[in-house]
Amino acid sequence: MAGSSRISRRDFVKVVTIALSSVMGAALGIPVIGYLIDPALKVQSSEAWIPLGPLENFPLGSPKSFSFTRSSVNGWEKTVNSYGGFILRKTETDLLALSSRCTHLSCSVNWDEGNNNYACPCHAAHFGSEGEVLDGPPPAPLDRYETKIEEGNLFIFFQKG
C-alpha cells in the first residue's frame, strides 16, 4: 500500500482508522463491561449455625418468633442484615423453623394466633402453620431452616447465596 493512487491511500487510512479505533474501543470497552457488572459476579455466600438460646424458651404448640443478624461485606462497607422467623415446637424435640420472609415478594409474615395461620401484610397471602400456602400469590411455602439441639440450646442453619 505505497499510497500509489489517491484512492488506495484513502482506503488504507480508512482501514487503519477503523482498526485502531476498534482496538482502543475494545481495549477499554471490554474491561469496562467487567468493571460495571463486577458486583453481580461476586459470590457472596455464607452459612453458619446460629444459636437461638435455650430450647425451653420456645413453648410447645404455638409458633414463637426469633430474629438474628448477620453482617456481610458489600464493597468496602459491612452491611448488617436482620433475619427473622418462627419456631414451632411440635413435641419435645420435633421442631419446625420457618423463615418469616414471604416467598412472594419478601415482606415479613406474622403469626395470627386467632386464625392459626401466617398472614402476609403485603398482598394478603396466608400460610398454614407448616408454612404451606393457603391462599394468595406466593409461589412456594415458607422457607425452612435446618435445626439442631446441642446441650439444651437450639441452633438453626443459616445459608445465603
Binding site: 474491561p31 467487567g34 463486577d38 458486583p39 464493597g75
Partner: peptide
C-alpha cells in the same frame, strides 16, 4: 481502595 482492589479492572480505569 475498593476500586483498586475489589472491582474487576478498577485499577485500569
Amino acid at each position: 481502595q475498593y476500586i483498586m482492589n475489589g472491582v474487576a479492572f478498577g485499577w485500569l480505569i
